[in-house]
């Protein structure tokens, strides 16, 4: 698939530590095309953020990409030199983080930080860079951008800061944006505003977007495709509507069943028993088998990746059958 903006093939990111190897990302493959949105869903510790950081090669040591390839417009990012990677980061590939207070420098004005980003990759005059920053702020719905450019991050609310972070990510019209839980810290009304701006920008500029979140309902409204991660692996992937309406993997099924809105009011939620396993030297086999209601002794072998329906994959011996019907 050469038309994919980003394609991961069997990516493995490992953290060798004193007690063994943490397999944070273990054999992950997916692709996102131009103008499409992939929702990468998982609980804390499932490896979804490390997957995002691996793409921009910002995994902190001792973490390292231990195998697989990251094809960005056909070029393998895992093989690029650090200098080549710097040329791509912030220009062709941008990232938005969860906490905008941590990603904006509190002692620099917004204009300083934004103009720096423009000049890092483009040889333009200062005035031209400033004009681009002003337009970018306007595009994400910040009123009177000319005055707001002179403000400091603490003068903005959380939602406004996230808009600034999105504006910075859009400065070079990147081909790929990786957004790591960007609306998790925001109120629902502000979240809806941010999702509105993001939807508009992706549609206008044809950017490929990877939206990392634990919130299935945000993915349902925003994404085209979904990939569900559990213990470092993608357990199920496919078009959002198909996967959420007919989950094939028992984990996806359990996750959906535990969302309050889908259960009858006042009844017990269908919880998944137990908790997520440690990723330190995991045993072979399906990582979910200890919590799974369909598990069988067979599950202590690595489950195969099957295709429960066209355009879908699941990593399970016993997928929920009614999917195929």
């Amino acid at each position: 698939m050469s038309d994919a903006t980003i394609e991961l093939r069997n990516l493995r990111t490992y953290f060798p530590i004193r007690g063994g190897v943490v397999r944070a990302v273990d054999d992950v493959s997916f692709s996102v095309k131009r103008g499409k949105v992939l929702g990468l869903v998982g609980e804390s510790g499932s490896g979804k953020s490390v997957t995002g950081f691996s793409i921009v090669r910002l995994v902190d040591p001792p973490g390292q990409i231990a195998g697989g390839s990251i094809l960005f417009q056909g070029h393998d990012l895992a093989r690029l030199s650090e200098a080549e990677m710097r040329g791509l980061r912030g220009s062709r590939i941008a990232m938005i983080f969860q906490d905008p207070m941590m990603t904006l420098n509190p002692v620099l004005r917004i204009d300083t930080q934004m103009i720096e980003t423009v000049l890092a990759h483009d040889r333009v005059s200062h005035a031209e860079a400033r004009a681009r920053c002003r337009d970018a702020l306007g595009q994400v719905g910040i009123a009177s951008p000319e005055e707001r450019l002179r403000a400091y991050p603490h003068q903005f609310s959380g939602g406004m800061r996230q808009r600034v972070a999105i504006a910075i990510s859009m400065l070079h019209r990147p081909d790929l944006i990786i957004a790591d839980e960007p609306t998790t810290a925001l109120d629902v009304t502000i979240q809806a505003q941010i999702l509105f701006e993001v939807q508009k920008l992706v549609a206008t500029f044809g950017t490929a977007l990877i939206w990392i979140t634990h919130d299935l309902s945000v993915v349902a409204g925003l994404a085209d495709d979904i990939a569900v991660m559990y213990a470092g692996r993608i357990v199920e992937a496919g078009a959002v509507g198909d996967v959420l309406n007919n989950p094939a993997h028992p984990y996806t099924h359990g996750l959906l069943a535990s969302v309050p809105g889908r259960n009858r009011r006042g009844t017990r939620l269908r919880q998944i028993p137990g908790m997520t396993p440690s990723l330190l030297d995991p045993e072979p086999g399906c990582a979910f088998r200890t919590r799974c209601f369909r598990a069988d002794p067979m599950c202590s072998a690595d489950p195969p990746v099957i295709q429960p329906a066209a355009g879908r994959t699941a990593r399970c011996f016993f997928p929920i059958q009614d999917v195929v019907a």
């Binding site: 009304t189 505003q193 999702l195 509105f196 939807q199 349902a220 409204g221 085209d224 809105g261």
Partner: peptide, 24 residues
């Protein structure tokens, strides 16, 4: 009413987000 409209739901599929204007 606005708050209820903004709650993302799994059912209903892809939607256009609008958002209450302005901030708290």
């Amino acid at each position: 009413r606005a708050l209820l409209a903004e709650v993302p739901r799994i059912a209903g599929g892809k939607k256009a987000f609008a958002g209450i204007k302005g901030e708290i």
